[in-house]
Simulated assay, not measured.
Amino acid sequence: MENAANGNESINAGHQNRLDRSREMTRNDWTSVPDKRWSSRVLHNIGTVSEHAAAGLVAGSALVVWVAVGIAAEFPPWWENVLYIASSSVTVVMVFAIQHTQA
Protein backbone atom coordinates (compact mmCIF):
# COMPACT_ATOMS: atom_id res chain seq x y z
CA MET A 1 0.00 0.00 0.00
CA GLU A 2 2.94 2.27 0.68
CA ASN A 3 4.17 1.95 -2.93
CA ALA A 4 0.80 3.13 -4.24
CA ALA A 5 0.95 6.17 -1.99
CA ASN A 6 4.48 6.96 -3.22
CA GLY A 7 3.33 6.59 -6.83
CA ASN A 8 0.49 9.02 -6.25
CA GLU A 9 2.83 11.48 -4.58
CA SER A 10 5.20 11.43 -7.56
CA ILE A 11 2.28 11.92 -9.97
CA ASN A 12 0.98 14.81 -7.88
CA ALA A 13 4.48 16.33 -7.67
CA GLY A 14 4.88 16.11 -11.45
CA HIS A 15 1.48 17.66 -11.98
CA GLN A 16 2.31 20.44 -9.53
CA ASN A 17 5.58 21.15 -11.35
CA ARG A 18 3.74 21.52 -14.67
CA LEU A 19 1.19 23.82 -13.05
CA ASP A 20 3.94 25.96 -11.55
CA ARG A 21 5.71 26.25 -14.93
CA SER A 22 2.48 27.17 -16.72
CA ARG A 23 1.65 29.82 -14.13
CA GLU A 24 5.09 31.38 -14.64
CA MET A 25 4.39 31.87 -18.34
CA THR A 26 2.45 34.97 -19.28
CA ARG A 27 -0.09 35.01 -22.08
CA ASN A 28 2.47 36.66 -24.38
CA ASP A 29 4.87 33.78 -23.71
CA TRP A 30 2.23 31.31 -24.88
CA THR A 31 1.71 33.14 -28.18
CA SER A 32 5.42 32.99 -29.00
CA VAL A 33 6.02 29.30 -28.21
CA PRO A 34 7.22 27.81 -31.52
CA ASP A 35 5.75 24.33 -31.04
CA LYS A 36 2.23 25.68 -30.52
CA ARG A 37 -0.07 25.26 -33.49
CA TRP A 38 -0.81 28.37 -35.49
CA SER A 39 -4.50 28.11 -34.58
CA SER A 40 -3.63 28.14 -30.88
CA ARG A 41 -1.47 31.23 -31.33
CA VAL A 42 -4.26 32.97 -33.28
CA LEU A 43 -6.86 32.19 -30.59
CA HIS A 44 -4.52 33.42 -27.85
CA ASN A 45 -3.90 36.63 -29.80
CA ILE A 46 -7.65 37.15 -30.23
CA GLY A 47 -8.07 36.66 -26.49
CA THR A 48 -5.28 39.15 -25.76
CA VAL A 49 -6.75 41.80 -28.06
CA SER A 50 -10.32 41.32 -26.85
CA GLU A 51 -9.47 41.60 -23.14
CA HIS A 52 -8.73 45.33 -23.40
CA ALA A 53 -11.37 47.96 -22.65
CA ALA A 54 -10.72 49.50 -26.05
CA ALA A 55 -12.23 46.37 -27.65
CA GLY A 56 -15.58 47.22 -26.06
CA LEU A 57 -15.30 50.80 -27.27
CA VAL A 58 -14.53 49.62 -30.80
CA ALA A 59 -17.53 47.26 -30.75
CA GLY A 60 -19.83 50.01 -29.45
CA SER A 61 -18.52 52.47 -32.04
CA ALA A 62 -19.04 49.94 -34.82
CA LEU A 63 -22.65 49.50 -33.71
CA VAL A 64 -23.26 53.26 -33.71
CA VAL A 65 -21.73 53.55 -37.19
CA TRP A 66 -23.84 50.58 -38.34
CA VAL A 67 -27.03 52.28 -37.16
CA ALA A 68 -26.02 55.65 -38.66
CA VAL A 69 -25.29 54.11 -42.06
CA GLY A 70 -28.54 52.14 -41.81
CA ILE A 71 -30.49 55.31 -41.17
CA ALA A 72 -28.77 57.03 -44.11
CA ALA A 73 -29.47 54.04 -46.39
CA GLU A 74 -33.05 53.75 -45.09
CA PHE A 75 -32.41 50.21 -43.81
CA PRO A 76 -32.52 48.09 -46.98
CA PRO A 77 -34.08 44.59 -46.67
CA TRP A 78 -30.72 42.77 -46.45
CA TRP A 79 -29.48 45.05 -43.65
CA GLU A 80 -30.86 42.93 -40.83
CA ASN A 81 -29.44 39.69 -42.26
CA VAL A 82 -25.93 41.12 -42.47
CA LEU A 83 -26.14 42.21 -38.83
CA TYR A 84 -27.31 38.75 -37.74
CA ILE A 85 -24.54 37.01 -39.71
CA ALA A 86 -21.82 39.34 -38.43
CA SER A 87 -22.88 39.12 -34.79
CA SER A 88 -23.26 35.34 -34.93
CA SER A 89 -19.84 34.92 -36.52
CA VAL A 90 -18.14 37.12 -33.93
CA THR A 91 -19.93 35.24 -31.14
CA VAL A 92 -18.77 31.83 -32.39
CA VAL A 93 -15.16 32.98 -32.78
CA MET A 94 -15.14 34.55 -29.31
CA VAL A 95 -16.61 31.42 -27.72
CA PHE A 96 -13.76 29.35 -29.15
CA ALA A 97 -11.14 31.96 -28.23
CA ILE A 98 -12.37 32.23 -24.64
CA GLN A 99 -12.72 28.48 -24.26
CA HIS A 100 -9.24 27.86 -25.66
CA THR A 101 -7.49 30.48 -23.56
CA GLN A 102 -9.19 29.23 -20.37
CA ALA A 103 -8.22 25.59 -20.99
Rank of each mutant, 00 (worst) to 15 (best):
A62W: 05
L57C: 07
P77V: 04
R23E: 10
E24S: 12
Q102V: 09
V64S: 05
S61Y: 11
S50K: 04
H44W: 07
I71E: 06
Q102G: 09
T48C: 01
I98S: 08
F96K: 02
V93C: 03
W30D: 02
H52G: 10
G7W: 07
V93H: 03
R23N: 14
V92T: 04
I46A: 03
V67T: 10
Q99D: 14
R37D: 14
G47A: 06
D29K: 07
E80L: 07
R37P: 06
W78K: 03
G70Y: 02
T101S: 15
W78C: 02
N8K: 10
M25E: 03
Y84E: 05
M25S: 12
G56A: 09
L19E: 10
S89R: 03
Q102S: 12
V42P: 02
A103D: 11
L19M: 15
A68V: 13
A97T: 00
P34M: 04
V93G: 01
H52I: 06
P77H: 07
L19W: 09
N12F: 11
S32Q: 13
G70S: 04
H15I: 13
T48Q: 07
A73L: 14
I71C: 08
I85W: 01
L19R: 14
F75W: 09
A5S: 06
Q99S: 15
N12H: 13
P77A: 08
W38I: 11
N8W: 12
G70T: 04
V93M: 06
S50V: 05
N45F: 02
E24D: 15
I98Q: 02
S40G: 12
V58L: 08
P76R: 02
V82A: 09
S40W: 08
A73P: 00
N45V: 03
R18S: 09
A5Y: 12
W78H: 03
M1H: 15
N8G: 15
G60D: 01
E2L: 12
W66C: 01
S32R: 14
Q99T: 15
H44E: 05
A103T: 14
V58Q: 02
A103R: 15
A86R: 07
L63I: 10
I71M: 10
S61Q: 04
S89P: 00
S32I: 13
V92L: 07
S10G: 04
A73K: 08
M1E: 12
G56C: 06
R21S: 09
R41W: 04
G14S: 15
I98C: 11
G70E: 01
E74H: 08
E9P: 00
L19S: 12
S40Y: 03
V93Y: 00
W38N: 10
A97Y: 02
H44V: 04
S89V: 02
T26M: 12
Q102L: 13
H44R: 06
A62H: 03
V65Q: 00
T91N: 03
W30L: 11
A59S: 08
I46Y: 06
P34D: 00
L43Y: 01
V65P: 00
V42E: 02
A73V: 05
S39L: 15
V92K: 03
